[in-house]
Structures are given as C-alpha cells and as structure tokens.
Amino acid sequence: MPIWEMLNRQDHGSLRVSRKSDAQRHFAQIVPAEFLQAAPYYAILFTKHPDTGAFYAGVVMGLEPDENLLVVDDTLPDYRPADLERRGFFTTPDGIAIDRDDPVFADPAGQTLFGIDGEPALALRRVQQALHTLEVGLSESDALIARLLSHRLLEPIDVKMEFDDGRSLRLDGLYTISLDALHALPDEVALDLFRSGDLQLAYAQTGSVRHLRTLGRIRNARL
C-alpha cells in the first residue's frame, strides 16, 4: 500500500523525477484527447480492466510485460502519454499527492520539480497538465467506449508474431474498432459519429494498429 504525501515545495524542493522507469512499461492508458497525438507513434488498442471488466484504451509499447521497445536513451517518441507523465502523482481534493516509493523518484539525476524561486519547474508543470488531461478525459473515454459498444464496433484483434529465434508471441485481450462494422452503419449514425468527432478517433485508432509490426521488427532486430 503506497504512502502518499501532499506535494509541497518545503518538503519536496529537492525531489527529482525521472523517466527511466518508462522502460518497464509495455502498456499505458490514454484518453480520447490523446488519440491524435499518440497515433503517429503507438498502436492504440482497447482492453478490459482485470478487476471490473470495463473497457479502456491504451498504447502498446512492448510485446511482453516490463518491456518497452520504444524507449531509446530513456526517451520515448515525440508524444509521452499522460499516464506515464503523471506516474507517482495523484490528484486529491487537497491538491497533488505523491507516492515517494514510486521508481520515478529514485534517480538522483532526474528533473527537479521546483525551481530556485519555489515555483513549479517544467517537469511539475507537465505532471499538472497530465493530471488534468486524465481527470477530464477518463469520463470522456467511458462515454466514447459506451458509444462504440452501442454500435457493436469493438472486436477482438488476433496478434501473433514469429521471430528469428524461433519464438512466437501472442497478444491476448486486445480489441480494435471494426472497420467492417463501422462502414456498415446507417448513414445517419455515421454522420452523428462524424459530427461528434468519434469517426476521426476511430480512423486514428485503426490506422495506428500498424505500429504493432514496428514493435515486432524492433524486437527481432535486438535478438
């Protein structure tokens, strides 16, 4: 059980946050506002929460747990999902809390949270933005998924990869938007999806699935 501390510059003025722990994240949740930013770099897919069975969207960054194939020199592609940016930080009614035991705080060479003037530094401002993105976006994500399910647009995706070392990997529990089902919708429904922005998100998600092949190529090249 994490022990939370309320973030403040008096107690945490020298605290640093690092991105090195991204290397152990193979999947990160995203919300609809992130789809267009994430799609050029990551495969966006849907999965179910293991406890509730509820769908949520996320980006695939590795093919096995604790593996991020996209991290190079502790850095991800141009877009870093809000779920990674806010790791170790939580929103409470009283402000921002932190889990001091989270690995993001373990690197003494990380970025400072507060400037010498005591104001939030760039790293903390990014965290604040990420927390806001998730706070607003989680309900939007639930609403989007409810609309997709109401039109029966989500379907399981079969992902199996073969590698030069003879191993094979199968990714289970992932879902995508069905283009066949999408294109079969009545015109008035498709128009509603277009006007709401859902259609743009659907094409961004389905187009991003191609990045799974990129992950396969990276893993094969590292063998």
Rank of each mutant, 00 (worst) to 15 (best):
P2L: 05
E5S: 14
M6H: 12
L7E: 05
N8H: 05
H12A: 01
G13H: 04
R16I: 02
S18M: 04
S18Q: 03
R19N: 15
S21W: 13
S21L: 06
H26K: 02
H26D: 15
A28M: 04
A28P: 05
Q29S: 12
I30A: 06
A38Y: 06
A39N: 11
Y41K: 14
Y42P: 03
Y42G: 05
A43L: 05
F46G: 12
T47P: 01
K48M: 14
H49E: 15
D51L: 15
T52V: 08
A57H: 01
V60A: 07
V60H: 08
M61S: 07
P65G: 05
N68R: 00
N68H: 06
L69K: 07
L70V: 06
V72L: 08
D73K: 12
D74M: 06
L76R: 10
P77Q: 02
A82M: 10
L84F: 14
L84G: 04
P93E: 10
T112K: 01
E119P: 02
A121I: 04
A123N: 05
L124T: 05
R126D: 14
R126V: 09
V127Q: 03
E135F: 13
G137W: 08
D142Q: 13
L148R: 02
S150E: 10
L153R: 06
P156W: 03
I157R: 09
V159Y: 01
D164H: 06
G166Y: 03
R167L: 00
S168A: 14
L171A: 07
L171Q: 10
I177T: 09
H183P: 02
A184G: 10
L185T: 13
P186E: 13
L193V: 13
S196I: 00
A202P: 02
G207F: 11
V209K: 03
L212R: 00
T214Q: 11
G216L: 04
R217Y: 12
R219S: 05
R222I: 00
